[in-house]
Design a binder for these strands. Structure first.
Lengths: 191, 191, 191, 191
DNA sequence: AATGAATGAGCGTTCATTCAT
DNA sequence: TATGAATGAACGCTCATTCAT
């Protein structure tokens, strides 16, 4: 089945290149023509590999999410204390600020273009959400889902501030503060 | 004598009705025709009161922000301790969840439709941002801008989770947790 | 009939102010709202005095044409020779260049907005055309309609060049040349 | 392989058909929908070949001007005297009266729809203007720019008269008169 | 597999005109 | 007489998608 291998491989190549294209203009604003042009193919070819703009995005989201989670966990492991872990998280966010802001931007933009009540039903949405949550559980080493949600919300909120153009927010400072608060709240914890 | 219409008053009435219309579909997806239809007027009349879709939104944002801030501060005052304040915040968020989610949705959507570098320059954006920040300062009764940003990010992150359709996040639980963490972190504080 | 007098008088006042308004933007581009605003009245009032945009223009054209012709003849009379008359014409055109260019602009613009086959039937059009032609006859003191058409075409052509933004055309130079050519062609003539 | 269409060739075909469409209604009055309909394509297809209405016109103007100039010079060459040349010009104008009137009509209409101060800067305008002027120089065989402007203004004025619906102007008569005047004014000239 | 020409409903916006007051 | 709110068809233009080649 050499044909299929080529097809799949080419599809993934195209997918990777799509991230920056979406990031430049957002899901809603970039046109399929522009994506095709950016990929160096025709619109016909683009539709040969992806049945619709929405499907293209969902496949991209799947791909991104998988890479994201494993990369983050790899980079963040090794911290001995919660404080250290939070500081590592801060550095990680700062180092990849552009990436996270872009991705959050694209993701929100995609959501805007779905019917509100459809979001939850979209399998891609449920799926990636779970993956991110699981990653936070792993990172914290804590089973508490409330705490996990807390951290996830906090991180998303931080990125949202940046997305809104608030330059005064400092990821490192904020994560350090979170570390102190967590340490004060969970004195026994040593991650 | 023109038709008996108080231009300003009617404009504000239309503005109020616009909130739900924007909330239903988002800034980018709703059309001026749909807004006009929802208001029960013609597109011509809509443009008689508002020079453009963007201006309509900005006027709405201004109006909403002013109501928001004063309403929130009124409802949240009276807490004796940080923990109580956070519990009040949680209840306030729950009680107005729909409203906050909608408004955050609309607001983000509007931002997506601006040129990224234009957002910060837009006076409406700067203005409302400052108003919200000041409100958080007042609420916390703390001068620490890092702490204030922390709380603001956290709240925005919570709303964002809801916007994404995550039903597992519980505002009350989350705010209570924030209260405990703040109390642990600031043991001297009694707000 | 005091009412009618007031009405007529006010109508003429409005009419006069309209020239500059049309000249600023052209017949096709200026809106009735803008005209009303420029006149300091409401659109309703504007329509009270003029049944339509086209009618407003036609009344203006009538008014302008009458003023034009008498003013021009008054200013140009007194020349002893054809050469002198042409030099006077050149100075007259230069002195009123803005006015003629504007008026030609408005007039052409109005024609564009009529159905082509309607132009000739429009009484206003026929009427003003004849008035201008008669003025040229009077000015040249020559019965030759071919010569009269020649001069009229030439003058209109000059103004058209200016309208197109050709700064290299010099009315005085051109009229002097016309004078020399006419003198050479009609050696016996002394106007 | 795409559909069998030579993009450039088809574009030029569409362009040619556009002349009559513009001529029927003028630049400002014809709509892109009407042009598309007249061409037998959808608006989408029209925009596939031309990025905007203005660009469509400018491309048409370029094309027309080039054809015009070479055709005119070819037809007018061979006259032995100025008088003959002018008579040839008269016949040429008569033979193509419809065409010149239409083209002048379209061209003026286009100018009305540009900002006045933009006209001169528009490269298409400068370019075609120069081409027409050079053609007049060649035709007259005279270096005198004043004389050249004279003839150009006169011809434009003639066409303008026709555009205004003045049926009494006779191109042949007028050009013959111009020939006589030129001959009287430049007795030594034999073209 | 790959192309790009073609579609057409729909966008934000405009404006001459009408009419209730 | 005078007002200005109200209309709605029409404008230039866009873009996800289809399909003949």
């Amino acid at each position: 089945m050499p044909k299929i291998v080529d097809h799949e491989q080419y599809r993934k190549e195209l997918l990777k290149k799509c991230f920056d294209l979406f990031a430049e203009k957002g899901y809603g604003s970039i046109t399929m023509r522009q994506i095709a042009e950016g990929l160096g193919v025709s619109t016909g070819t683009l539709y040969h590999y992806f049945p619709s703009k929405q499907s293209l995005f969902e496949q991209l989201a799947q791909e991104i999410c998988e890479q994201d989670v494993s990369a983050a966990l790899a980079e963040l492991e090794g911290a001995q204390t919660l404080q250290e872990a939070m500081e590592a998280l801060g550095r990680y966010l700062v180092n990849n600020e552009d990436y996270f802001v872009k991705w959050t931007y694209i993701w929100i933009d995609f959501c805007q273009h779905q019917e509100t009540n459809v979001i939850q039903n979209t399998s891609i949405f449920k799926h990636t959400n779970k993956q991110y949550q699981q990653a936070v559980y792993d990172f914290l080493g804590v089973q508490d889902p409330v705490l996990a949600s807390f951290v996830l919300s906090f991180v998303n909120g931080l990125i949202l501030e940046k997305l809104w153009g608030d330059e005064t927010v400092d990821f490192i400072e904020q994560c350090a503060l979170l570390g102190k608060m967590l340490t004060a709240y969970l004195p026994q914890s040593s991650n």
